[in-house]
Amino acid sequence: MGKFLKILSCKPMDEMETHISLRSKSYAQLFTMAALIIWVLYDLIQAAMSYDYEGNFLPWLIILGSICIEDISKHILTKRATADDEEYVAEQKAKRPEQLIAGIVLIVLTAAVSVFLASAFRYLFFQAGILK
């Protein structure tokens, strides 16, 4: 592979280039997440302003998918890196139920906040006379 890239005069990245590339990607991800959150909020307002508008789940799904992929890959990579350490593996096994509860609480909280925001927007628009 390295030889092939050399023939194409396209060298693989060295460690600083990889580091810079990762940082740039993290900024790009930050921008994407901010744009998706704005989209979700805009959609919540649209849904609150209209009785007919059912809402768009696409930005939510993209945000959730992105968070899930990040967390799952982090978990897998950490597991691979610490697989041979018995002490750490035993400690993590004991923490598993707590992590599961924390995950469920986070999902319930996210859903509750979304429902609250939609209701709050609807109430505010109703009070302002935008929604009749």
Binding site: K11, D14, E15, M16, E17
Partner: peptide
């Protein structure tokens, strides 16, 4: 060392800590 010149410059100028 199998790196790029930019990496060497950054290390020499204390802008990047190598592995």
């Amino acid at each position: 060392v199998g790196a790029t010149r930019q990496t060497i410059i950054a290390i020499e100028n204390d802008k990047y800590n190598p592995s």
